[in-house]
Design a protein around this nucleic acid. Structure first.
Lengths: 195, 195
DNA sequence: TGACGACTAAACCGATCTGTTTAGTCTAGT
DNA sequence: ACTAGACTAAACAGATCGGTTTAGTCGTCA
C-alpha cells in the first residue's frame, strides 16, 4: 500500500524533488528513452524503491517532468509579457522566448522532443504536451485581442507557428538568432493586422 | 572479413533494401531509441547477422535511414518546385511541403525528431541532419534570388523558419493546416521583399 | 570444380531495461 | 510509547538492448 500519487505534485518530498529535478535534466539533455530509471535514481541519490514509491512508473515521471516544465514556461512567459502594455504583449512573447531558449532550450522544444519519442497516444505525457500547445495558442489569441487586431484567431495561429519554428531552429544551429527572425516576421504580421 | 560498407548505399542487396525500408518505417513511426535491431531484422525477414554484415552498426543504419529520407525529400521538392516559373518557386516550396507532410510526415520532421533522440554530437546521423537543414536553407536562398528579391539571405532565413514551424506543428494537431498558415506568411514576406 | 558473396538459423555475450521484493533505519507527530 | 511515512540497501525478475559467433546453405561466375 504505497502512496505514490501526490495529486498534482503540489508538494514533493525532498527525495521526490531531487528525482524530478534530476529527471528533468536528463530527459531534456539526453532524451527520454535514452535515460533509465536506474540512472535517475543514482544521480538523485535515491533508491529505485523511493522513486517508484513517489512516482509509480517511468511514464508518470515523464508526465510530471513535462508538467513542471510547462508550469515554469507559463510562469516565465506571463510574468515577462505583463511588463509590457497590452498593445505590445503579443510581440513581447518573442522577447520572453529569446531569453527562455537562451537559458533553457539549447536542444529545442522539450515538448516537441518528447512527442517525437512518445508515439503512443495513450501515454500520459501526451496530454501534457497537447495542453501546453493549446494553452500557448489560447494565450497568444488573448494577447492578439488585447492588441486590438481584427482577426485574432488567424494571427494567433501565425504567432504560434513562429514560436515553434524559432524554438526548433534554435536547437539545430543552422541559423543565428532564429528568435530574432521570428520576431521580425511577427512584428510585420502584427502591423499588418492592426491596419 | 565482412564487406558492410556499400560506399553511399548506392545499390543495396535485396536483404539490405528490406532492412532499410523497415528501419525507415519503424524509426520514423516509433522513434529511433524505441526500436531495436532485433525487431528491424525480424520485420525485414532477415537475420541480425545479415543486418550487421550490411550496415555495420545501428548508428550507421540510422544515418542511412536519414540520408535516404533526405534524398527523397530533395528529389520531391526540386521536382515539384521546378514546375513553377522562377519567380514563383520560393512560394511553391510550401505547396510541395503541403503534399509531402500529408503523405510522409504525420509525426513531424524526421530530422528534428532524430536530433531530439541523438544528443551525442559525434553520432554519424548528426552530420546528415545538419546537411539536410543547410541544404534547404541554401536552396531557399537560391529560389529567393530567382524571385529577384533584394535581401535573399534574410528572406531565406524566414522561409526556413516557416518550413520548420509548419512541419513541427503538423505533427502536433493543435492547429488545422499549419502549412497553409506558413504559406500565407511566406507570401506576405515575399511580396514585401519584392517591393 | 571451386571460390565467393549473400544469406539463414540460432546460440551466445554482458549490459541494461522497467519494475518488485524483503528487510530495516530514522524522524516527526500524537 | 507508538505509529506512520520517508527513506536506504540490495537482491531479484524477465525482457530486451546492441553486437558477435559458429555453422551451414544456396546461387553465380570464372
Amino acid at each position: 500500500m504505497e502512496a505514490h500519487r501526490q495529486a498534482h505534485m503540489g508538494v514533493l518530498t525532498p527525495a521526490a524533488r531531487r528525482v524530478l529535478d534530476t529527471a528533468a535534466e536528463l530527459f531534456y539533455g539526453q532524451g527520454i528513452n535514452a535515460v533509465g530509471v536506474d540512472l535517475i535514481a543514482k544521480r538523485a541519490g535515491v533508491t529505485k524503491k523511493t522513486l517508484y514509491d513517489r512516482f509509480g512508473s517511468k511514464e508518470t515521471l515523464v508526465a510530471a517532468y513535462l508538467r513542471e516544465r510547462d508550469e515554469r514556461w507559463r510562469a516565465w512567459l506571463t510574468a515577462e509579457v505583463e511588463k509590457s502594455p497590452p498593445a505590445d504583449r503579443a510581440l513581447a512573447t518573442f522577447d520572453a522566448l529569446a531569453e527562455w531558449v537562451r537559458r533553457e532550450n539549447p536542444r529545442g522544444c522539450g515538448f516537441v522532443n518528447a512527442a517525437a519519442e512518445l508515439p503512443d497516444a495513450g501515454h500520459p505525457a501526451r496530454q501534457v504536451i497537447a495542453d501546453q500547445k493549446h494553452w500557448l495558442r489560447g494565450y497568444l489569441r488573448e494577447l492578439c485581442e488585447q492588441a486590438g487586431v481584427a482577426a485574432p484567431d488567424e494571427l494567433a495561429d501565425e504567432l504560434l507557428l513562429l514560436h515553434e519554428g524559432a524554438t526548433v531552429l534554435n536547437g539545430l544551429s543552422v541559423v543565428t538568432d532564429p528568435v530574432g527572425i521570428a520576431r521580425r516576421l511577427a512584428r510585420r504580421a502584427l502591423e499588418r493586422a492592426r491596419t
